[in-house]
Structures are given as C-alpha cells and as structure tokens.
Amino acid sequence: MLEIRGLTASVGGNDILKGIDLTVPDGEIHAIMGPNGSGKSTLGYVLAGREDYEVTGGSASFNGIDLLAMEPEERAAAGVFLAFQAPVELPGVNNANFLRTAVNAIRRAQGEEELDAVQFLKLARAETKRLHMPDDMLKRNVNVGFSGGEKKRNEVLQMALLKPRLAILDETDSGLDIDALKIVADGVNALRGPGFSALVITHHQRLLDHLVPHRVHVLSKGRIIRSGGPDLAKELEKSGYASLIAEAA
C-alpha cells in the first residue's frame, strides 16, 4: 500500500506540492490527472527519490517502508519503479546488458539468485515478443536512435522484467499512437494483481480506457482537489478542468 500524508515539496525554492493526501491500496491502479504545472510529475519524482526535489513536509510510505528516508536505489530495490515521460538515451550502454544489470541488482536485493546471460536473454526475448518489439532492440544502445514509441515500449519492457511492487508512470502515453498506447496499457495490465500497485500520471482519458483504474485523482496547484471512479476521467475529457478548479478555489 502507498500512503501519502500531508506531502509538501519544492523545486529550486518554489513550492510545488502543497499537502498531498493519497492512499493507493495493494493491488490497485490509481490515475493522477490535472492541468500542466499542477505538480503531477513532481509527485512521481518525489516518490522515486529524484535529486533536486526537496521534501519540505509530510510522509510517504509503501508497505510500511518510509520512502522519504531511502536513497533512490534503495527505493528501486524495495520495488518502486518510475517510467519517465522522456526516457534518456545512454550512448555506449548496451540495452540487454543494462536490463540484465538492473534485473540482477533487484534480485540480489530481494535475496534471489541472479540470472546468467542465457537465462536473461530467454526471459527478455519472451517479453520483447509480447510487447511486439524486435529482438535487435536488445542489441542496441539504451534508447539511442529509438523512436518515441520505442522508448516508451523499452520503459514497459524494463517494468515487465523488474516486476515492481509500485509502478509510477509519468505520462508514459505522451506522444504514442493508438497501437503503442495499447501495448503500454497491456504491459501494465499484465502485472495486475495482489502485490502490484500503480500510480498512472496522464493527461488523456484514452489510456484509462485500456487500464480502467480503480480511482482517478485531479491535481491542481499542488493539491488533490477531487477524487472519483473511472467516470471522472470521462467527465474531464468532456468538460476540462476549469469548473473543478473554480469549485475548489
């Protein structure tokens, strides 16, 4: 379970999060929506431990673990995964080697045996096939020369291999066509079940058509101003945020 209470945070001296209260029960997918500049990505970065994002108050825990007291790599080892809105390129770093190193680091932290090269490639190829990714993507450098859709699929591939307990998707649907959007959603849905929760940050209701979240939360000016079921996203698609923001003012 993800439990956030009174979370405040700043970036470069500017207050962004101004008191977030949010609970994501075990096994549930929750969506975060809101206008640009409302603090959606900041919330994801704070939970993942990205540097330069200063927590100024409140708490955040996952399955009883104090996330805010942990280094980013410790959060990853505990099962927290962040899919970036704009995945970075890593020239000179082979994708398969990068993924195997990440998978084995998590396995070591969780007391499991590491995968040798043959075991890993068998697993990785099965996942690339499921995600409709060509095998040669494993041979390329991480995200170098990848299209926008390929970069997002590579993020979902990482998630599928790492099997996190909490996945934070920061606008992973941004810039995707309909087919790629469904592949991203299918990657998340494949992990659904007890022991997996997700916080999906998105501008678009169309992703939620495939994911069908348990709850939708609207963030504005650093605060959650309304929460509801999946129909809330459809309401926002029709009417926008203005009326909700006006009501919350």
Rank of each mutant, 00 (worst) to 15 (best):
E113K: 13
V142K: 00
A117N: 05
G149N: 07
V24I: 15
V11Q: 04
E235W: 00
N143I: 01
I224R: 07
D136S: 14
L232V: 12
Y53K: 12
V55T: 15
L207K: 05
G27T: 05
D173L: 06
K182S: 13
K182W: 11
M33A: 11
D21Y: 12
L67T: 06
E74S: 10
I224S: 04
R226L: 11
K221R: 13
N141H: 13
L82P: 00
G58W: 07
P72L: 09
L161F: 02
R226T: 08
V216K: 11
P25I: 14
H132Q: 07
L43N: 02
Q158D: 03
D186R: 15
M70V: 06
R75E: 07
A126F: 01
G57S: 09
N154I: 03
L207H: 04
R153F: 02
E237I: 06
H203F: 12
L121D: 13
V103K: 01
G57E: 10
S239I: 08
L7D: 02
E235R: 14
A198R: 13
T172G: 04
L22K: 08
G27W: 03
A9D: 11
A167L: 05
V11F: 06
G187W: 00
K238C: 11
S227E: 15
N143Q: 07
K139R: 14
E127T: 07
T23E: 14
A160Q: 10
V184K: 03
E74H: 13
E112M: 15
D15I: 12
A160M: 12
D66N: 15
A102Y: 04
L211G: 05
T128C: 06
L191W: 03
D135L: 07
P35H: 11
R153A: 08
I16M: 00
I225F: 12
A124H: 00
L47A: 04
